[in-house]
Deep mutational scan, measured.
Amino acid sequence: SADYSSLTVVQLKDLLTKRNLSVGGLKNELVQRLIKDDEESKGE
């Protein structure tokens, strides 16, 4: 998976916004949300 932890919070929020995901929470939560979304989209 992508190394989201190396991105800035601003970059993470931009990715979340593009996916229509919540941008609330700490950086670690944003990273986990993106990883979870990646895993769910692979399952389709």
Score class of each variant (00 low, 15 high):
Gln32Thr: 09
Val10Tyr: 04
Leu21Trp: 00
Lys42Thr: 10
Glu39Asp: 09
Lys27Asn: 03
Lys13Leu: 09
Ser1Ala: 13
Asn28Glu: 15
Leu16Trp: 00
Lys27Gln: 07
Gln32Ala: 14
Lys42Asp: 09
Arg33Thr: 04
Leu12Asp: 01
Lys36Asp: 14
Thr17Pro: 01
Asp3Phe: 09
Ala2Cys: 15
Thr17Leu: 13
Leu26Lys: 13
Ile35Cys: 08
Leu21Cys: 05
Ser41Asp: 09
Gln11Leu: 06
Asp38Phe: 05
Leu30Gly: 00
Glu44Cys: 15
Val31Ser: 03
Gly25Ala: 03
Tyr4Gln: 02
Gly43Ala: 13
Glu40Leu: 13
Asn20Met: 07
Ser5Asn: 15
Leu16Glu: 01
Leu21His: 03
Ala2Thr: 13
Gly25Tyr: 00
Val10Thr: 14
Ala2Tyr: 14
Asp37His: 13
Thr17Cys: 12
Glu39Ser: 09
Gly24Gln: 15
Leu30Asn: 01
Arg19Gln: 03
Lys36Arg: 13
Leu12Ser: 00
Ser41Ile: 10
Asn28Gly: 11
Leu34Pro: 01
Lys27Phe: 10
Leu34His: 00
Thr17Ala: 15
Val9Ser: 06
Asn28Ser: 14
Val10Met: 12
Asn20Phe: 06
Gly25Ile: 01
Ala2His: 14
Lys36Gly: 07
Gly43Arg: 14
Val10Asp: 15
Glu44Val: 13
Thr8Lys: 04
Thr17Lys: 15
Leu15Ser: 03
Ser41Gly: 11
Ala2Lys: 14
Gly43Pro: 11
Gln32His: 08
Lys42Gln: 11
Lys13Thr: 08
Glu29Lys: 05
Ile35Asp: 04
Leu7Glu: 03
Asp37Gln: 06
Val10Trp: 05
Tyr4Leu: 05
Glu40Cys: 15
Leu21Thr: 02
Glu39Arg: 11
Thr17Trp: 06
Asp38Cys: 05
Ser5Gly: 14
Leu16Cys: 13
Thr17His: 14
Lys18Glu: 10
Ser1Thr: 14
Thr8Arg: 03
Tyr4Cys: 03
Lys13Asn: 07
Arg33Asp: 01
Val23Gly: 07
Val31Tyr: 01
Ser22Glu: 12
Asp37Asn: 12
Ser1Lys: 15
Ile35Trp: 04
Ser22Tyr: 06
Lys13His: 07
Leu34Ile: 05
Glu40Ser: 11
Leu30His: 01
Asp3Ile: 07
Ser22Ala: 11
Leu7Pro: 01
Val23Trp: 05
Lys42Ser: 10
Asp38Ile: 06
Asp38Asn: 04
Gly25Glu: 03
Lys42Phe: 10
Leu7Asp: 03
Gly25Gln: 02
Arg19Phe: 00
Ser1Asn: 14
Lys13Trp: 03
Tyr4Asp: 02
Asn20His: 11
Gly25Met: 01
Leu26Asn: 15
Glu29Thr: 07
Tyr4His: 03
Tyr4Met: 03
Lys36Ser: 10
Gln32Leu: 08
Leu7Trp: 04
Lys27His: 09
Lys42Trp: 10
Gly43Gln: 13
Arg19Trp: 00
Glu29Gly: 02
Val31Pro: 02
Leu21Val: 02
Tyr4Thr: 02
Asp14Thr: 07
Asp3Met: 07
Gly43Val: 12
Ile35Ser: 06
Leu7Gln: 06
Val10Cys: 15
Glu29Tyr: 00
Lys18Asp: 08
Gln11Ile: 06
Thr8Asp: 10
Asp37Lys: 04
Lys27Met: 07
Ser41Pro: 09
Arg33Met: 04
Gln32Gly: 08
Ser41Tyr: 10
Lys42Arg: 13
Asp37Arg: 04
Ala2Arg: 12
Asp3Pro: 07
Glu29Arg: 03
Gln32Phe: 02
Val10Glu: 15
Val31Trp: 00
Lys13Gln: 12
Asp14Pro: 00
Lys18Ala: 10
Gly43Tyr: 11
Ala2Glu: 13
Leu15Tyr: 05
Gly24Pro: 03
Asn28Lys: 10
Asn20Glu: 07
Glu40Lys: 14
Thr8Tyr: 00
Ser41Thr: 12
Ser22Asp: 12
Val23His: 07
Leu16Tyr: 00
Asn20Leu: 06
Val23Ile: 12
Val9Asp: 09
Val9Trp: 02
Glu39His: 11
Val31His: 02
Lys18Val: 07
Lys36Ala: 12
Glu40Asp: 13
Lys42Tyr: 10
Thr8Leu: 05
Leu21Gly: 02
Lys27Ser: 05
Leu30Arg: 00
Asp14Val: 08
Leu26Glu: 15
Leu34Arg: 00
Leu34Met: 03
Glu44Gln: 14
Lys18Phe: 05
Ser1Val: 12
Ser6Arg: 10
Lys36Gln: 13
Val10Ala: 15
Ser41Trp: 11
Ser1Met: 14
Gly25Pro: 02
Asp3Ala: 06
Asp38Leu: 06
Lys36Thr: 10
Gln32Tyr: 03
Gln32Lys: 10
